[in-house]
Every structure is written in structure tokens, then in C-alpha cells.
């Protein structure tokens, strides 16, 4: 089901790698001001989760984690589709995709 070669890599390596990827994504969301780059960072977070799920799935010899990954990919695509449509609307209204310009609502 899962090639033996992957199981020779210790599970900790996968966990560390995906934790680093996830943190890079979180930092990207929190610090960047371009809406499109923020969406890229969210994608990075989701891909870190995907990596983690696949490696745990291989570790447990259980296919559920891999199936989860397919659903996450599909949902992420839907999320980005809606998100990009909204960015287009924002651009039409403000001629900018900088989130610092989105300060009409505050208080």
C-alpha cells in the first residue's frame, strides 16, 4: 500500500518539517499585507497539514488520512476560488489588494 522506503524515515522528521511549514504559513498570514500572498500563506498552512496527515497515515498503516488529504485539497480550491472572487470585487472598489486599505469598517 505504502512504499517501504517512506517508512524508513522516522515520523519525527515529518512532524518537524510540517510544523515548520505551518509556522511559516502562520507568520505569512500575520505579517504580509497583500491579500493574495495571505491566501498563499493559508495554502502553505493547509499543505503542511496535508503532509502531516499523509505521513501519519503511512505511520499508522491506515488509509483514512490520505483520503482526508484529497478532501482538504478540494476544499482549499473552493476556498481560494471564492477568495479570489472577493479580491476581484475589492480591487474593483478600491483599486488595491492591500489589506491595510480595508479600513472602512472599524470602531
Amino acid at each position: 500500500m505504502i512504499p517501504q522506503i517512506f517508512q524508513t524515515v522516522p515520523i519525527e522528521h515529518f512532524v518537524y518539517l510540517s510544523a515548520v511549514l505551518f509556522v511559516i504559513g502562520v507568520v505569512g498570514v500575520l505579517t504580509r499585507s497583500n491579500a493574495i500572498i495571505i491566501f498563499m500563506s493559508v495554502e502553505l498552512m493547509l499543505n503542511a497539514v496535508n503532509l502531516l496527515l499523509v505521513s501519519f497515515s503511512s505511520y499508522h498503516q491506515d488509509p483514512a488520512g490520505q483520503i482526508f488529504v484529497f478532501f482538504i485539497m478540494a476544499v482549499a480550491a473552493a476556498e481560494v476560488a471564492v477568495g479570489l472572487a472577493i479580491i476581484t470585487m475589492i480591487y474593483r472598489n478600491t483599486h488595491s489588494v492591500d489589506i491595510n486599505d480595508m479600513s472602512r469598517l472599524k470602531g
Partner: peptide, 14 residues
């Protein structure tokens, strides 16, 4: 937030 939730779910699965 769903990114955070998913990271939690994957850890739980692990």
C-alpha cells in the same frame, strides 16, 4: 481558522 483546526485534527489523527 480552518487551517488551525486542521492542524489540530491531523495531530489528533497522528
Amino acid at each position: 481558522s480552518s487551517g488551525l483546526l486542521l492542524f489540530g485534527i491531523s495531530m489528533l489523527y497522528g
